[in-house]
Design a protein around this nucleic acid. Structure first.
Length: 644
DNA sequence: GTAGAATCAACGTA
DNA sequence: CTACGTTGATTCTA
């Protein structure tokens, strides 16, 4: 983590970092490195001979490879010009990409989360392309998720699953809260290659793929003086016998005739989507491709990955195994795009066999302190690793837990259930259990109380999530311009628990004594709107907001230093357009002023996307002593505040 | 303008 | 865990 300067031009910057992976992999087929087996010397640690600086800023001149001297971070006041950030590796992909998709990703033309549903309804009937439909895709997506989470929470309370995705979608449609509602050929503003989705309705509300079930989206558009009906987006999700093993080729089946009962099966006809695909073959227009994958964390679930633009190169008829005549369309991925589904397949391979990951400096930075190994990689320069620290996933408190206030427990048999008014933990959390049945956070709150030792319920209780620890395949990686960062091989769903901010709780009075610790101190500074409005669902439904606004926000006294000891959290960089947020959680003691700091996904995070959270604006609370230094943020997103 | 048909969902249950 | 049945939303088509 390198806090003095930060360049994250947009939330998808990480994939630019990811890009070199494939190109570099053949050059470094074997782990490069050092101390792959650390088990004899826990708790580790690796030491960097060249410190925390990117090459080209002094430290890189040191000829110190291989010598293991301890370093301390001395990153005071260094700032970089944006141009110096260009590493030799990702320059070409960046420019190639940027000319393709002209729109910024995370703009700040938000549909305001303060409006109620009823006021939104007045927007009905606006023509496409105006008003709310122009709203930024990221905000629309997050609004959908917030509504879906709230509906799911209410449905689970009544023990009735009624498709929260469709309910949220219906509200979005009725209020015209959607992005890119006018159909188009080619790139959709705000949707990046590699973006992931968990429901078809998500594709719909952001304007990537309009049909809620159908696999082929098409429209009539002009080609010179002609008009033609052409395909604009297809979903390949396993419903037909498609050939999609190759990352750049897709053999897509036409639609129709594919009924589950044999009586209804019939040959496909050249109409609707099939006709559009045929016309696209002749018109050679770009077609967006969404590929479906099995969700590794939910065996019945599916994840949709946007894989960029393809073109149809040939078509033919073919008799399928089920005996019907079927149209086949061979699509090739347009060159010059960054990897989408390819990254997915690559990381899945690494998860199955971590030895296949190249450029590895250390197979497990945590020395088995985490359930899953934490990979340390560098594929951008010769830095051998972050400065010395002790890996721990615990928080070291000032006082022993036994001397702290006890947390009250519930008396539930077996597991706690939503809607059970006799569950003390549910009441403690304001009436609702904070997590869905699949363990996702429903709502950001000032503090969350998980069940603990004083509860009667079992460890299977859904109100025990963060206490079980991180279960992701993390990777600490070298960034091109902001020191070390954290990313993950797994897809992370919005609301999923990521990790705790581990380290040493420090006394507020001592904060200013050791300035070099400043870069690794966590404080509950008020975050930006993206984080505060994470749960705008209730507001849109006319309910009271369960969280506070920036004005009402009150920081907690807790401060945690990860300088000398910590976990992967210490490598999470700042962004004004973050994909992670912090959330206080209690489960093993009752001192609400010193809770655990847990990180959750702010939105769906594709594999290999850098994790970032909003450090907040330092000094905003005017607390004088104890507030950390303000630093210039160069993150470059349109809603960058300039400081953090 | 509108009803009906078509469709590579998503859940719950067996 | 896979199969099957149920309840579906959006958009296209007639």
């Amino acid at each position: 983590m390198y806090r003095a300067s930060n360049f994250i031009p947009d939330p998808y910057q990480e994939l630019l970092d990811a890009k070199p992976l494939r190109s570099l992999a053949p050059m470094f087929p074997a782990p490069m490195g050092v101390n792959v087996n650390q088990s004899s010397t826990p708790p580790l640690v690796c030491v960097t001979p060249v410190g925390q600086f990117p090459t080209g800023f002094g430290a890189g001149n040191l000829p110190a490879f291989g010598s293991f001297a301890t370093f301390s971070v001395t990153a005071n006041g260094v700032s970089y010009a944006g141009t110096s950030a260009n590493g030799p590796i990702d320059a070409t992909p960046i420019s190639a990409y940027k000319t393709r998709s002209g729109m910024p990703v995370d703009g700040d033309d938000p549909y305001s989360g303060n409006q109620t549903l009823s006021s939104e309804r007045k927007r009905r009937g606006r023509p496409p392309g105006s008003g709310a439909s122009r709203a930024d895709g990221s905000n629309v997506h997050m609004t959908f998720e917030a509504l879906r989470r709230r509906h799911l929470q209410m449905d689970e309370t009544q023990d009735a699953s009624r498709r929260a995705d469709l309910k949220a979608g219906a509200i979005m449609m009725a209020s015209n809260i959607r992005a890119n509602s006018g159909k188009r050929v080619g790139t959709v503003p705000g949707v990046e290659i590699g973006d992931i989705f968990y429901f078809r309705m998500e594709l719909c509300v952001i304007g990537l793929h309009a049909p809620s079930m159908g696999g082929i989206d098409y429209m009539t558009t002009k080609f010179g003086n002609d008009e033609d009906s052409v395909a604009i987006c297809i979903v390949s999700a396993g419903g037909y016998e498609n050939v999609d093993d190759d990352t750049d080729v897709l053999v897509y089946s036409g639609q129709g005739g594919n009924s589950r009962n044999t009586e209804e099966r019939h040959d496909q006809k050249l109409e609707r989507g099939n006709l559009a695909l045929e016309r696209s073959l002749h018109r050679k227009n770009e077609i967006r491709v969404v590929r479906g994958f099995k969700d590794p964390f939910c065996l019945t679930g599916k994840i949709y990955v946007y894989d960029g633009l393809y073109k149809i190169h040939e078509s033919w008829k073919e008799r399928t195994k089920s005996g019907i005549n079927c149209f086949k369309y061979k699509l090739l991925r347009e060159p010059g795009q960054r990897d989408g589904a390819a990254i997915w397949k690559m990381t899945q391979k690494w998860i199955t066999n971590p030895a296949t990951r190249g450029s590895v400096l250390l197979a497990d930075l945590s020395s088995k302190a985490e359930m899953l190994p934490v990979c340390l990689v560098n594929e951008v320069d010769h830095d051998k690793g972050p400065g010395h620290f002790t890996y721990t996933n615990q928080v070291k408190y000032l006082r022993p837990l036994s001397s702290m206030k006890k947390l009250q427990g519930c008396g539930c048999q077996s597991v706690c259930l939503p809607g059970d008014s006799s569950c003390a933990c549910g009441q403690h959390n304001g009436g609702d259990l904070p997590y869905s049945s699949s363990g996702l956070l429903s709502c950001r709150k000032p503090i969350i109380y998980e069940c603990g030792d004083s509860c009667n319920c079992s460890t299977n209780c859904r109100n025990r999530v963060t206490q079980k620890g991180a279960r992701l395949h993390f990777e600490v990686f070298r960034t091109t311009n902001r020191g070390w960062g954290l990313r993950c091989w797994d897809p992370i769903r919005s609301g999923a628990f990521i990790c705790e901010y581990a380290g040493e709780v420090i006394d507020e009075l001592k904060v200013n004594l050791n300035d070099s610790e400043d870069d690794y101190i966590f404080q509950t500074v008020c975050p930006g709107d993206k984080t505060l409005k994470w749960n705008c669902g209730p507001e849109l439904l006319g309910e009271d907001s369960p969280y506070v606004t920036a004005d009402e926000f009150e920081p907690l006294p807790i401060k945690i230093s990860a300088k000398n000891m910590g976990n992967v959290s210490r490598f999470i960089n700042h962004s004004c357009s973050p994909n992670v947020f912090w959330q206080p959680v209690q489960y093993d003691h009752g001192d609400d002023r010193h809770p655990h700091i847990m990180f959750f996904a702010l939105k769906h995070i594709p594999p290999m996307t850098e994790l970032t959270y909003d450090y907040g604006v330092a000094g905003a609370e005017s607390s004088g002593s104890g507030s950390r230094r303000t630093k210039n943020c160069m993150c470059g997103s349109r809603n960058c505040r300039g400081l953090f």
